[in-house]
Design a protein around this nucleic acid. Structure first.
Length: 315
DNA sequence: CACACGGCCCATATAT
DNA sequence: ATATATGGGC
DNA sequence: GTGTG
């Protein structure tokens, strides 16, 4: 696999992050879309560039093609350098802090001059963050807590590495008598070589008990959030695990939704709209009436499609 | 050229 | 108590 | 910034 593809994607993601900081909206999506395409590219980006076919990659047009060329030739992208100069904020590490996104990073920079995690930590310890619009005491302590988690290096995990973990969680939840079904969804179910996190879908009439059990599995480093139907935590090895509880009538729709991919979902939704339906994680609806939802097969059939295996739902 | 650009949901915290 | 903003997910 | 109409 071409190592450069990953680098190019990374750098495009970075450009997107900086544009995000500037309040751009559509350029951000454009850059991320191009980055994604390149990640999923089966050929080496260098070969594509050599044959002058960069613009045939979905989401890559004249401007991005030029920038990719520049990066492949010189190892740099002036556009990114310029963005960095203009707004010297360490997006990469700040973005990795839980609960911080472009909007809040921007605010922290403008009001407190926060450029990196060191500044952030200092500001938090000096209690300068509470009181800023959108921040309170709780936000401040959450930031400090997140900074303390060295394990918050975001990386993707090889599938083999997470299989035993996924199985452990699946078994544990499945053994509960209030649990009807458990499935590990997301890119894990699509059998991708690496996964960014684990997504677990559970059918149960007693969500709170499931939440309880989930928040007490072995090897938890810290929890990110918990609600009635949804919880997220991070394991000791840094792997994030999300749990979602749904009712049996929505199981199929939720499976589809949480298995993804994102682009597959968009495609399905468009088909649904064209047929006068609305598709979401709860079911397929005609007006207020649910016409399908408890099984995946049912939803695909109602949309006029053959069943598609999870591995083939990339787009 | 002008225009749209996935669409819907949950969780959390703050603001009213 | 409810609305709004933001982050996050697919 | 890119892709469509």
């Amino acid at each position: 696999m071409a190592a450069k593809n990953y680098q190019v994607a990374e750098i495009l993601y970075m450009v997107a992050d900086y544009l995000d900081l500037e309040g751009e909206e559509f350029k951000v999506r454009a850059y991320r879309r191009a980055a994604r395409s390149i990640e999923n590219l089966s050929q080496s980006i260098e070969d594509v560039a050599k044959s002058g076919k960069l613009q045939e990659i979905p989401g890559v047009g004249e401007a991005i093609a030029k920038k990719i060329d520049e990066f492949l030739r010189t190892g740099k992208m002036e556009h990114l350098e310029k963005l960095k100069r203009k707004s010297p904020v360490d997006m990469e590490s700040l973005n990795a802090v839980e609960s911080l996104g472009p909007k809040k990073i921007k605010l922290l920079y403008q009001r407190l001059g926060v450029r990196n995690v060191e500044h952030l930590s200092k500001a938090a310890k000096e209690a300068k963050i509470r009181g800023l619009p959108g921040f309170g005491e709780l936000s401040e302590s959450k930031i400090l807590q997140s900074l303390g988690n060295v394990s918050s290096n975001k990386r993707r995990f090889p599938r083999e590495e997470v299989v035993p973990i996924a199985e452990m969680i699946r078994k544990k939840l499945q053994s509960m008598n209030v649990v009807e079904k458990v499935e590990v969804v997301g890119s894990y179910r699509r059998k991708k070589e690496t996964v960014g996190d684990l997504d677990i879908l559970v059918v149960s009439s007693s969500p709170s008990e499931v939440m309880d059990a989930f928040l007490n599995i072995d090897g938890i480093d810290h929890t990110i959030g918990e609600g009635e139907k949804k919880a997220s935590l991070v394991l000791d090895n840094g792997l994030q695990v999300d749990l979602r509880v749904v009712g049996a009538e929505s199981y199929g729709a939720a499976l589809i939704y949480f298995t993804g991919s994102k682009y597959h979902n968009i495609r399905l939704r468009k088909i649904a709209i064209k047929k006068g339906y609305k598709l979401n994680e709860y079911g397929l609806f005609k007006g207020d009436e649910m016409v399908a939802g408890s099984t995946e097969e049912e939803v695909y059939r109602e949309l006029g499609l053959d069943y598609i295996d999870p591995e083939n739902r990339e787009e």
